Amino acid sequence: MSAKSANESKVEVIARMFPHDANPAGNVFGGEILKQIDVVAGIVAHRHSRKNAVTASIDRVDFLKPVYVGNALILNARLNAVKNSSMEIEVRVEAEDLIKGTKTLTGTALVTSVALDENGRPTHVPKLALKTKEEKQRFAQGIKRMNQRIKEKKRNKAKA
Rank of each mutant, 00 (worst) to 15 (best):
1 M>Q: 15
2 S>Q: 14
2 S>V: 08
2 S>Y: 08
3 A>D: 11
4 K>C: 02
5 S>M: 13
5 S>K: 08
6 A>G: 12
9 S>C: 03
9 S>E: 02
9 S>Y: 05
9 S>W: 03
10 K>H: 03
13 V>F: 06
13 V>H: 00
15 A>P: 01
17 M>V: 12
20 H>M: 07
22 A>N: 08
22 A>S: 15
24 P>N: 04
24 P>A: 00
26 G>I: 12
28 V>K: 07
28 V>H: 07
28 V>S: 04
28 V>M: 12
29 F>T: 03
31 G>N: 07
31 G>K: 07
31 G>T: 11
31 G>M: 04
31 G>H: 08
32 E>F: 05
35 K>R: 11
35 K>L: 01
36 Q>G: 04
37 I>M: 06
37 I>W: 03
41 A>G: 05
42 G>A: 01
42 G>K: 00
43 I>A: 05
43 I>T: 01
44 V>W: 00
45 A>H: 06
45 A>M: 10
45 A>L: 04
46 H>D: 01
46 H>T: 02
46 H>I: 03
46 H>Y: 07
47 R>L: 04
48 H>M: 03
49 S>F: 01
52 N>Q: 15
52 N>V: 12
54 V>Y: 02
54 V>P: 01
55 T>Y: 00
57 S>D: 00
59 D>T: 03
59 D>E: 11
60 R>M: 05
61 V>Y: 02
61 V>W: 04
61 V>M: 09
63 F>G: 11
64 L>M: 10
64 L>W: 10
65 K>V: 06
68 Y>H: 14
70 G>P: 15
73 L>D: 14
74 I>C: 07
74 I>Y: 04
74 I>G: 02
75 L>W: 09
75 L>F: 09
78 R>L: 03
78 R>M: 04
78 R>P: 02
79 L>G: 01
79 L>E: 05
80 N>A: 10
84 N>Q: 04
89 I>H: 00
89 I>L: 00
91 V>P: 02
92 R>Q: 15
92 R>D: 15
93 V>Q: 10
95 A>P: 14
95 A>V: 13
95 A>W: 12
97 D>P: 15
97 D>Y: 13
99 I>W: 06
99 I>G: 07
102 T>F: 11
104 T>I: 11
105 L>N: 11
105 L>D: 12
106 T>Q: 10
106 T>W: 08
107 G>Q: 10
107 G>K: 02
110 L>M: 14
110 L>I: 15
110 L>A: 05
111 V>A: 04
112 T>R: 01
113 S>Q: 13
115 A>S: 11
115 A>L: 06
116 L>C: 13
118 E>N: 14
118 E>F: 14
119 N>G: 13
120 G>F: 01
121 R>S: 12
122 P>H: 06
122 P>R: 02
123 T>Y: 05
124 H>Y: 10
125 V>C: 04
126 P>R: 07
126 P>C: 10
130 L>I: 09
131 K>W: 07
131 K>I: 12
132 T>C: 13
134 E>N: 10
135 E>T: 06
135 E>L: 08
135 E>H: 10
136 K>Y: 03
136 K>L: 03
140 A>L: 10
142 G>A: 02
143 I>W: 08
146 M>T: 01
146 M>N: 05
146 M>L: 08
147 N>Q: 14
147 N>M: 11
151 K>L: 10
152 E>G: 08
152 E>Y: 07
152 E>K: 13
155 R>Y: 12
155 R>C: 08
157 K>T: 09
158 A>P: 12
158 A>C: 09
159 K>A: 15
160 A>I: 15
160 A>P: 09
